[in-house]
């Protein structure tokens, strides 16, 4: 029995009222859903709330999951993405359009984004590994438009293939690739341009 069949059996048990099966589903997928929500919303508190909402929605609509249309992973990601988009449309998690040169409000060290990038004076690999740089990349990710952000999150952070991403986003595969490329390029420009300016 491969993974898909095992998950489908788990879902069937859950739909038939097996609480232990639901617990297993929650255990298996809560990290993934939380991370998607966290990278999309940019806030740990919002991500926790959103992840709970996603599971509540999943619990209510689990019987609508069709094993012939997509994998359970794709269905879960679709539910998550749709809920995130709904919240975004409500204006709860608006895009941050501040310049990278502006000092972020939650950072009180007075340094600009570029200054903090340049601050370490490390090689790119070492900077990425550092906790501070993780925050900077996370902030840069929040500055992407929602369309580009969701595409790069699903591809580069969740390792989904283009076909599944196209199903989740309900757009053609070519559009998915284009958004991923633009998202990566814009993110790199946000980070590297300011790093070069700081030098």
């Amino acid at each position: 029995m491969d993974d898909n069949q095992a998950v489908n059996a788990l879902v069937r048990r859950c739909v038939s009222g097996d609480a232990a099966a639901w617990q297993e589903i929650v255990q298996q997928y809560h990290r993934r859903i939380y991370n998607i929500c966290y990278r999309f919303s940019g806030s740990a508190d919002d991500a926790s709330d959103l992840a709970q909402e996603v599971f509540i929605k999943m619990y209510r609509t689990l019987s609508t999951f069709d094993t012939t249309r997509a994998s359970f992973m794709t269905w879960v990601t679709t539910v998550t993405r749709n809920l995130l988009v709904d919240h975004f449309r409500k204006g709860k998690y608006d895009r941050i359009t501040d310049s990278l040169d502006a000092a972020p409000g939650d950072q009180e060290d007075g340094l600009t984004f570029a200054e903090r990038l340049e601050d370490k004076g490390l090689s790119p690999e070492a900077r990425v590994r550092s906790q501070e740089t993780q925050k900077l990349v996370h902030e840069a990710l929040r500055r992407l438009s929602p369309e580009l952000r969701e595409a790069v999150i699903l591809r580069d952070l969740q390792d989904m293939d283009y076909k599944d991403i196209a199903k989740v986003l309900n757009v053609p595969e070519g559009t998915v690739k284009s958004r991923i490329n633009r998202g990566r390029t814009e993110l790199a420009r946000l980070l590297q341009r300011n790093y070069k300016q700081a030098n």
């Binding site: 809560h30 991370n35 993780q134 952070l157 390029t185 590297q192």
Partner: peptide
């Protein structure tokens, strides 16, 4: 540029969910 952006993103670590997340989800569902 695109490769640099991809490398930045892939280097991001997985965020650790709150410890009570599973409990809260189960409490709100079943």
């Amino acid at each position: 540029e695109a490769r640099a952006g991809m490398n930045w993103l892939e280097a991001l670590d997985e965020a650790e969910p709150p410890r009570n997340l599973v409990h809260n989800i189960l409490a709100q569902t079943i």
